[in-house]
Design a protein around this nucleic acid. Structure first.
Length: 954
RNA sequence: GCCCAUGUGGCGGAAUUGGUAGACGCAGCAGACUCAAAAUCUGCCGUUCGCAAGGGCGUGAAGGUUCGAUUCCUUUCGUGGGCACCA
């Protein structure tokens, strides 16, 4: 009987579906366990082999936990709002809901093929009105809440209003408040709401009349069309995540994330303690407020740098410098934050103004430069070139003299950011170590009233509106400049639009639907929609109670399932999604809606599976006809990579002389034309058309008919080599591999195990389909322990020997350990070793094999269930009892010790495990090989680590 | 530029706490079975010197700590991810 994986997998998938074996109940006597994957965006390209890596890992762990007696929640859904669907709609006119629906169907079919144990009855889709009803509802909770700085938590805004009405605030009295107009009141409240609106900068593309996402902007121009992009101020919604900065930092102490993940989040939040200092500006009324973390270096300030966006520039720039300053500012407008900071080139412009050092009266030139960002601190810094590398380079570039305040710690060649130097040239701080000087300087600054201590965060409030269609509409109506909660019942559904283009002022497409926007005279709906992370910030809660129409999630359900025990996803979400959803959870907790303020107890980061793309070298010959300067592509060749690689191009003089050197030896250039240019570049070939690097030439011609007639310059034997590049999997690079194809060809069990076998889940690695054979052979070998292709059943009910039980129990121990620590790749190896050993021992005994099958169930559920039933078991193996390993079977009495002399391995000696150090030393010194390496000398020391090794030191 | 990760045979990787580097698999080579192929099985498989026994070198590079370093520290180079409107 052969291993017919296609039949077996179909049979059991149907059976499991029919018996609803993956249905999960919110009531159970078993302990609960919640395993969650970061849900996918259902792109039109479908699932590729990179997606399921984390899903397989979580599926294995879920099934393992189930076998261990837990009630396991392991749901799946779709993050189905997003830009690509809208972009596609813009191009084809198809409604995003239609394409999204189709894409989800494809994804689900692909996922089911791999045999995941999802309870599909709990599926969520962020674009489903029944889901985004609650996203909108939570937004309104945020809108109607503020962060109480005394209690350090979110509270209803009504509480704040009550306080204002009765006792006012530091900005106004109760009487004043009660006299304010609605609009005036709202202006004050807006400064406290957790979801609030203000003017912010967006990437504005005039030519497209639209706002662009950062990744639609390349080098300051739009990716589509190459039009200029500038920063433009527009009204935007924001979430006051900065209010939660400290709690987001503290919360990291309570969760099990990797240290690097925590580090990334800490850096993102970027808490720093320092001071804001006001500097007088020479001959000006306005003061320059800078933020610094190093007030101890105040005597080393040689210049100031102000962000180009700062309003103060207009006030202080001198007439002589005005033109230069304006020019510089317009240059900076075209640049993104990333570009501004990544730039190695040093740019800047002097304003002509001088600040005055409050301690020694020195005049400090004020510059503007793009390396200072407006959004951070006060948008201005005091530059200390002897202590800061960027300041130093700036000073050097613009020939600004550098003051040394750290003596020999500064060598004149590079800045030294030390805090341990003793200060010099520093007035009242002279002689103090910098660390101590910090407090002294701060006290003095506060005493003089020219500045104050200030905690700063690099993190900014999160932009929460998008000028797009395919997202959650805001249940907000604008009364002039005052936002009000819309009267509509939730969900406020996305209305139908005829076109997906932007509104006349760059608003989202919703702005074009007059009837929808104008709800009453002078009352207009908010026309932007929520960003992608809105729906994903709370989806882990919805899975617990997905069909609840009364509540986003019943408190009983969220208390039962509690936090996500294991969350698996990529590091690319390290700071975005994870921080947002941590914040939402904290708000929901503060408002008493759920019982915990961290969503994810443990986070496991899966690596990215990269594509292994294949490229062909294409040579193209261009000619010019009749004096026209347009180049015409006259001839094309494709060149095998090894030939091209070994080719040395002739010097440019040769081109016109000898085309032989250029692979175009058979080309005759028409009389009325002349050779213009020969170029070589790479064109992608689909990975389906190569075997390793060898191209299937005929297949390629069929795939790209435009190359049917071109000449292929082949290597010896007529073969054609492509070359490889490891890069992100994407449709455009033709390097995607569809998991469904592999499941058809090798079976889901093979595919699951191969994905795991590839390497550690956390690591990124390139995909290579070739290795899958090895895993497939392993499963066939396992099958043959039960069934022979010709003889049929070979398993038996004989009693297992000690040696066989030892193989089994060693495997039980290792598989359990490896699964617990998410080392799935080594677990697969362990299965292979076990099956190899059982085959060598000719062990076909049910007593051993049955236990092995249970271990294998999380990894390869279909074959395990099939063989389990062949062994005559009644129930499903999914609910079998996980084997316990018997330590007494694994006890050894002796060990083959490696023996080193001076750290170099020289021999092995078999020794009993209960020997003492002196006994070991004696036996080791008797050994011939050890004697030889001792060369008659006495050993200085013999290091003996029990059960590990022996090292003789001479 | 900044933050994080990572670098081991031809390839994916193993070595869990500083203790035998290269488990397991792919590819390759040689052989068995077969009319043949597939499948399966056996052996070899980091590099170098050597007939062999045995030795030298070897975990991106350079230093350091240690009896002992893929593992810890310093410096440096390459690659991947993130940098706030891709998700």
């Amino acid at each position: 009987m052969e291993y017919k994986f296609n039949e077996i997998e179909k049979k059991w998938q149907d059976h499991w579906k029919e018996k609803k074996v993956y249905k999960v109940s919110n009531e159970s006597d078993k302990p609960k366990y919640y395993v969650l994957d970061m849900f996918p965006y259902p792109s039109g390209a479908g699932l590729h082999v990179g997606h399921p890596l984390g899903y397989i890992a979580s599926d294995i762990y879920s099934r393992y936990k189930r076998l261990k007696g837990f009630n396991v929640l392991h749901p799946m859904g779709f993050d189905s709002f997003g830009l690509p669907a809208e972009q596609y709609a813009l191009e084809t006119g198809q409604h995003p809901a239609t394409t999204t629906e189709k894409n989800i169907a494809t994804f689900k079919a692909q996922l089911d093929k791999i045999g995941f144990c999802y309870d599909w009855d709990r599926e969520v889709r962020t674009s489903d009105p029944q889901y985004y009803k609650w996203t909108q509802w939570i937004f309104l909770q945020l809108f109607n809440s503020y962060f109480c700085n005394t209690q350090k938590k979110a509270r209803p805004i009504a509480d704040l209003i009550k306080k204002y009405e009765t006792s006012g605030s530091k900005n106004f009295t109760a009487e004043q408040w009660n006299g304010f107009s609605v609009a005036e009141k709202e202006e004050w409240l807006m400064q406290r709401r957790l979801a609030f609106s203000k003017y912010g900068e967006v990437n504005w593309c005039e030519a497209l009349g639209t706002v662009l996402a950062n990744d639609e902007v390349v080098n300051g121009v739009s990716e589509r069309g190459g039009h200029p992009v500038v920063k433009k101020k527009m009204r935007q919604w924001y979430l006051r995540i900065t209010a939660y900065a400290d709690r987001l930092l503290e919360g990291l102490e309570t969760v099990d994330f990797s240290d690097s993940m925590k580090e990334m989040q800490r850096n993102w939040i970027g808490k720093s303690e320092g001071a804001e200092i006001d500097f007088e500006v020479k001959n000006q009324k306005s003061k320059l407020k800078v933020y610094t973390t190093r007030p101890d270096t105040i005597f080393g300030v040689d210049f100031m740098v102000v962000a180009p966006e700062s309003d103060i520039i207009a006030e202080i720039a001198t007439d002589e410098q005005k033109t230069a300053v304006d020019e510089y500012i317009s240059y900076v407008k075209s640049r993104s934050d990333v570009e501004r900071q990544a730039e190695k080139k040093i740019t800047g412009c002097f304003t002509g103004a001088y600040a005055i050092n409050p301690f020694d009266g020195r005049e400090i030139p004020i510059w503007i430069s793009e390396y200072v960002l407006a959004g951070y601190g006060t948008g201005a810094i005091m530059a200390v070139p002897c202590g800061d590398e960027r300041d130093f380079k700036f000073a050097q570039h613009f020939n600004i003299p550098i003051t040394n305040i750290i003596g020999s710690h500064y060598n004149g060649e590079e800045a030294n950011p030390t805090k341990d130097a003793v200060l010099e040239n520093s007035g009242f701080l002279n002689g103090l170590v910098m660390k101590e000087a910090m407090g002294v300087a701060l006290n003095k600054i506060e005493e003089m009233g020219i500045g104050k201590r200030k905690v700063n965060y690099r993190m900014r409030d999160a932009g929460f509106s998008r000028q797009r269609y395919w997202g959650e509409p805001f249940p907000i109506v604008w009364n002039g400049e005052t936002p009000e909660v819309a009267n509509d019942a939730l969900p406020l559904e996305l209305p139908h639009v005829d076109t997906y283009g932007p509104g006349s002022e760059g608003e989202g497409p919703l702005a074009n639907i007059k009837d929808w926007v104008e709800v009453a005279p002078n009352k207009k709906r908010e026309t932007s929609t929520m960003p992608g992370y809105a729906g994903s910030s709370w989806y882990f809660l919805r899975y617990m109670d997905p069909n609840n129409n009364e509540n986003f999630c019943d408190r009983k359900a969220s208390d039962y399932w509690n936090q996500v025990d294991l969350y698996i996803g990529g590091t690319e979400h390290a700071v975005g999604h994870l921080l947002y959803s941590r914040m939402w959870t904290k708000v929901l907790f503060d408002l008493g809606l759920i019982g915990y303020d961290e969503p994810y107890k443990k986070l496991l980061n899966q690596g990215m599976i990269q594509g292994s793309s294949r490229y062909l070298i294409r040579g193209q010959l261009f000619i010019e006809r009749n004096g026209s300067t347009d180049h015409e592509n006259f001839s094309t060749v494709l060149i095998s990579n090894d030939i091209y690689r070994n080719w040395t191009p002739p010097s440019s003089d040769d081109i016109r002389v000898d085309l032989k050197n250029y692979y175009f030896d058979e080309v005759t250039i028409p009389a009325d034309a002349k050779l213009a240019q020969i170029t070589f570049n790479a064109i992608p070939a689909s990975v389906d058309l190569v075997d390793g690097y060898l191209l299937d030439i005929e297949g390629f011609k069929k795939w790209r008919p435009e190359y049917t007639d071109v000449k292929f310059i082949t290597s010896n034997g007529g073969v054609f080599f492509t070359y490889g590049e490891v890069e992100k999997m994407s449709k455009s690079k033709y390097n995607t591999v569809n998991p469904s194809d592999l499941c058809n060809q090798y079976g889901a069990d093979t595919f699951r195990m191969y994905e795991m076998f590839l390497g550690p889940v956390e690591a990124s690695k390139p995909w290579d389909t070739k290795g899958i054979e090895g895993v497939h052979r392993f499963l066939r070998k396992l099958w043959r322990l039960f069934n022979d292709d010709i003889k049929g059943k070979v398993w038996n009910e004989e009693k297992a020997t000690d040696a066989e039980l030892k193989i089994l129990h060693r495997t039980i121990k290792k598989i359990e350990e490896d699964t617990e620590r998410f080392s799935f790749n080594t677990a697969v190896s362990t299965f292979m070793i076990c099956v190899n050993e059982l085959a060598d021992a000719k062990c076909n005994k049910k007593e051993v094999l049955e236990q092995l099958l249970i271990l294998l169930t999380p990894y390869a559920p279909h074959i395990a269930e099939e063989l389990w039933s062949q062994l005559g078991n009644e129930g499903s193996i999914l609910d079998a009892t996980y084997p316990k390993y018997n330590a007494s079977l694994l006890v050894e009495s002796s060990k083959e010790y490696p023996v080193s002399v001076n750290g170099k391995l020289r021999t092995n000696i078999n020794l009993a495990l209960d020997l003492t150090q002196p006994q070991v030393e004696e036996l080791v010194l008797q050994n011939e090989i050890v004697q030889k390496w001792l060369e008659g000398k006495d050993p200085k020391k013999i290091i003996f680590v029990k059960n590990k090794m022996i090292n003789v030191v001479v």
